[in-house]
């Protein structure tokens, strides 16, 4: 199991008072897969990702990331995951180089290893021209690349991306997805939430979430075949309408 699956979620549940944000969801993600989490705002995507990253405790249920239990081995989980939030959590008053150095530092990267990783992400993300710029002066698309760089320098086995492309123009979004593909090709498992339907088409497999529940899982082509639609968007709208009618 642990060899084949990077993320295994069983009956995971999170309540905030009377409100159930995530309602007994179960799914698993294979190693090296780009797994999309599709849903409207408030569907429970971010709550799920925060539980898997150890930022939030589940009310009930189990989950493991890279073979490690998120409840009992949360410290070990933190070593093997990367996380990029929709806010691009960067220090605006630090330069690009200083942000990279800081995030490498908190993962314990230093010396030759740090310089090697720094060079790798700078080349991969094309950040060379911005290295000494203050982060607040970067265009949004470049902030997004820097945030991704900071999240992958320590070679996480599983990378969590929470709406990584919100507020970014379509060209930058396309380029960003190319980066995600190259990371996945390197063997990293990518767990990405989005509400952009075109991005959903890029994923290996998708899970559609609505009102805290997973209402469909499968590859984009499987889903389109199963529900007899020509795009993921039509699949999504059909499912959500059916869900609300029921």
């Amino acid at each position: 199991m642990t060899e084949e699956y990077s993320i295994v979620v069983e009956q995971l549940c999170r309540r905030f008072g009377d409100f159930t944000a995530v309602d007994h969801i179960s799914f698993s993600v294979k190693r090296g897969e780009i797994f999309g989490f599709l849903g409207a705002n408030g569907a429970g995507k971010t709550t799920t990702i925060r539980m898997l990253c150890g930022l939030l405790l589940p009310t009930s249920g189990h989950a493991s990331v890279a073979g490690l239990d998120i409840l009992t081995q949360s410290e070990a989980v933190k070593q093997v995951i990367g996380y990029m939030s929709q806010k691009f959590s960067l220090y605006e008053d630090l330069t690009v180089a200083e942000n990279l150095e800081f995030y490498a530092g908190i993962y314990g990267l230093r010396g030759a290893a740090f310089r090697r990783e720094r060079q790798r992400v700078i080349e991969m993300m094309g950040l060379a021209g911005f290295i000494d710029k203050l982060t607040r002066d970067l265009p949004t698309g470049w902030k997004q690349r820097l945030a991704l760089s900071c999240a992958v320098m320590h070679h996480p086995q599983v990378l969590f991306l929470d709406e990584p492309t919100s507020g970014v123009d379509p060209i930058a979004r396309r380029q960003f997805w190319n980066l995600i593909y190259s990371l996945a090709a390197g063997g990293q498992t990518i767990f990405v939430t989005t509400h952009y339907m075109d991005e959903a088409e890029y994923c290996n497999r998708l899970s559609i979430m609505h009102a805290g529940k997973i209402i469909a899982v499968g590859s984009p082509s499987e889903l389109k075949r199963r529900y007899r639609k020509s795009t993921v968007e039509q699949v999504f709208i059909g499912l959500v309408k059916a869900g609300e009618a029921a």
């Binding site: 990253c53 150890g54 930022l55 410290e75 933190k78 070593q79 995951i81 996380y83 939030s85 806010k87 959590s89 960067l90 220090y91 605006e92 995030y103 908190i106 993962y107 314990g108 900071c150």
Partner: peptide, 11 residues
């Protein structure tokens, strides 16, 4: 700014 969260997901 959310950077505290980013630190919390690290070891």
């Amino acid at each position: 700014t959310g950077t505290m969260e980013q630190i919390f997901v690290s070891p």
